[in-house]
């Protein structure tokens, strides 16, 4: 079933905050729209966010529903999804 971006909203949890995001977006787009810059921290602690947008660079990795290292650009947001980023680390 086709979902058009912007026609519906979902409830998700991002870094322990309940937020509403547009249905039909990827996790990366939803986090970008929430103003989150640091999706993850690099091995030396630098903030990192999306680069390639298509699952190649692994820079947009976040924890989704307790599964670490999920590529935010390859996964669609779903209702009740719990996401942890590095924006407050």
């Amino acid at each position: 079933m086709a979902i058009n971006v912007g026609t519906a909203e979902l409830n998700i949890v991002v870094d322990d905050q309940r937020v509403r995001v547009a249905a039909g977006t990827t996790v990366a787009a939803a986090l970008f729209n929430l103003g989150i810059a640091a999706f993850r921290r690099s091995v030396s602690g630098e903030p990192r966010g999306p680069v390639c947008g298509m699952g190649v660079c692994f820079e947009c990795r976040v924890m989704i529903d307790s599964r670490p290292h999920q590529r935010a650009c390859l996964i669609a947001v779903t209702d009740g999804m719990n996401i942890r980023t590095a924006s407050q680390a």
């Binding site: 971006v5 912007g6 547009a22 039909g24 977006t25 990827t26 990366a28 787009a29 939803a30 970008f32 729209n33 810059a37 640091a38 999706f39 690099s42 630098e46 903030p47 990192r48 966010g49 999306p50 680069v51 390639c52 947008g53 298509m54 660079c57 650009c73």
Partner: peptide, 20 residues
Amino acid sequence: TLPGVMGIGGTQALLKSGAS
């Protein structure tokens, strides 16, 4: 490596995935 520096195609992908 700063967040906000993205690929040209990567930005297009993010835009088409619903980013504003």
